[in-house]
């Protein structure tokens, strides 16, 4: 009998906070995703796994390339990866601005597992 390998959709996490890179992949794995975590936008862009990434979870405020910068760079490379922004900035103005930039969702840290699940469902729909 030929074994059937079910490919789990790949979610990439980009965050400079180590505790997020450590904790979020486990939760995403519980949801049934394959996960890769990167500490910067540059590391993600150099990974060669962009084309396989079905959804990108990205911290808005990081040293180096910002969320909107990466968004533009992906567009330039003709990669239409749905992005879920995450941010520690509870400012009400951030979310509408990110959605305007074309993000699927913008979650304020700390976010619940249900909100994350909803955002991923929307991204992969």
């Amino acid at each position: 009998m030929k074994s059937v390998k079910i490919k789990r959709p790949l979610v990439s996490v980009v965050d400079d906070d180590e505790s997020v890179r450590e904790s979020l992949p486990d939760l995403l794995a519980e949801f049934g995703f394959a996960v890769q975590a990167f500490s910067s936008a540059e590391a993600f862009l150099n990974s060669g796994n962009m084309a396989r990434t079905r959804c990108l979870i990205f911290d808005v405020a990081m040293p180096g390339m910002s969320g909107p910068d990466l968004h533009r760079e992906l567009k330039r490379r003709k990669l239409e990866i749905p992005i879920v922004f995450i941010t520690a900035n509870a400012d009400e103005k951030v979310r509408p601005r990110m959605l305007e930039e074309g993000a699927v969702e913008c979650l304020i840290k700390p976010f619940s597992d249900t909100d994350l699940r909803k955002a991923l469902d929307a991204a992969l729909a």
């Binding site: 505790s19 997020v20 904790s23 939760l27 520690a88 840290k109 597992d113």
Partner: peptide
């Protein structure tokens, strides 16, 4: 809040 975010994610997991 960054490490708090890790705490909540870990507890959820």
């Amino acid at each position: 809040p960054l490490s708090v975010s890790g705490i909540i994610t870990n507890a959820n997991t």
